[in-house]
Simulated scan of single mutants.
Amino acid sequence: MRRGVYLLEEVEFHPMNSRRPLEYLRWLTAYKQEDDRLAEGAHELTEGLSIRSRDIDLVGAFYAVGISGHPQFKVVTLWDCHGGWDGGWRQMLEIYDDVQKNLFLSDIDDLRHGAFSRPLGAAPGSPSIAGLLDEGYAAPLYLFESARVRPGAALDYLAAVREERAPVLAEHGHRLVGAYEVQFCDTEAVTLWGTDIDAHLGLQRARDAALGMDDETEPDHRLLSWRKQAREYLEGDWRETLLSPYPGSKLAPG
């Protein structure tokens, strides 16, 4: 069983033009839906569109909910490299083997202001995105966490997330979709959770109640205990923000 390899990309759009992220999401999802019809392993570099391959699978395309802490406007995408390092990841690397003019994405010039990509390795026990899709799983809202951990502590942190945090969040309507060690660095971990608005609001209120700031709902003190436990692994910023799946992407409800 090979380790799952994924790519997470955060794309920003400036100046404040709300049509640009929509144009990008429309273009990207339509382009990758065409790729789903390709044969397994078939891939090519095409001018203006970059690589065409079903093994570099756009499993999630999300519009970032700016009120939860993202810069406005932002798109987050999650790609599954089928076959791991020797599969979709290798195909992505091959486009840099000789920097030719068809490497450059002319079809989306001037849409994106900037993009930040992170290669992810699935931690032990992380759900398989392909398995979730086979199950038909999709959520109307996702919780995206990036955590700056002590050097070398990413897998330990993610093990604690799986064993301690995931069961608690499951009781509050959050399902662990992915737990990832960011590759080519040793100081960052990423988690992704599926949820909905009611579960999100209930979780916030349960934490407020545990802090003594909401006497109209049931407190869950385990939420506070987790934050103390998490600090054993963290060394810098920790942030959770919300993502709304774009219709037509695989992790969006049909």
Rank of each mutant, 00 (worst) to 15 (best):
V182N: 02
E218Y: 08
C185W: 05
V161H: 03
A189P: 08
V168G: 07
V168M: 12
G152K: 06
Q204D: 15
E163N: 02
E171R: 11
D186K: 03
D214H: 13
Q204I: 04
R175K: 10
E181T: 11
P151V: 08
A159N: 09
R150T: 02
T191E: 07
R205M: 06
T195D: 06
D186E: 10
D156F: 10
H172Y: 08
A160W: 09
T217W: 12
A154L: 09
E163F: 05
Q183L: 15
H172N: 10
V182Q: 08
P167S: 09
T191K: 04
E164V: 05
L211H: 10
R205K: 12
A159S: 13
D196H: 07
A179M: 00
L201M: 02
A154D: 14
T217Y: 12
Q204V: 03
D198W: 13
E163V: 09
Y157K: 06
G194H: 06
Q183D: 09
E181C: 12
P151T: 03
L203W: 14
D156Y: 07
L192N: 05
H200L: 13
Y180M: 08
L155R: 14
R162A: 10
L155D: 14
R148S: 07
A159Y: 03
Q204L: 15
R165W: 06
H172G: 07
A159P: 00
V182Y: 03
E164H: 01
H172I: 06
P167I: 07
G178L: 09
W193R: 03
Q204W: 14
A189M: 05
L155G: 10
E181Q: 13
A206K: 11
A153G: 10
G173W: 04
W193P: 00
Q204E: 15
G194R: 02
L169A: 02
L155N: 15
A170H: 11
L201H: 12
H172W: 08
E216K: 13
G212E: 03
A153C: 01
D156W: 03
V161D: 05
A153K: 04
C185P: 12
L158C: 00
D215R: 12
W193F: 09
V177R: 04
L158T: 04
A166I: 10
T191R: 01
H174F: 04
A209S: 12
T217S: 14
R162Q: 12
R150V: 04
G152T: 09
Y157E: 00
G202S: 02
E181H: 14
T191Y: 01
T217M: 11
A147C: 06
A160N: 05
R205L: 05
V182K: 03
G202M: 00
A209L: 11
A154P: 14
L211I: 01
A154I: 06
D198H: 11
D208A: 15
G212V: 01
Q204P: 00
M213Q: 15
A206S: 10
A160Y: 12
D208G: 13
Y157W: 08
T187L: 09
G178T: 02
D186W: 01
D196W: 08
P151I: 01
A154M: 06
C185V: 15
M213C: 13
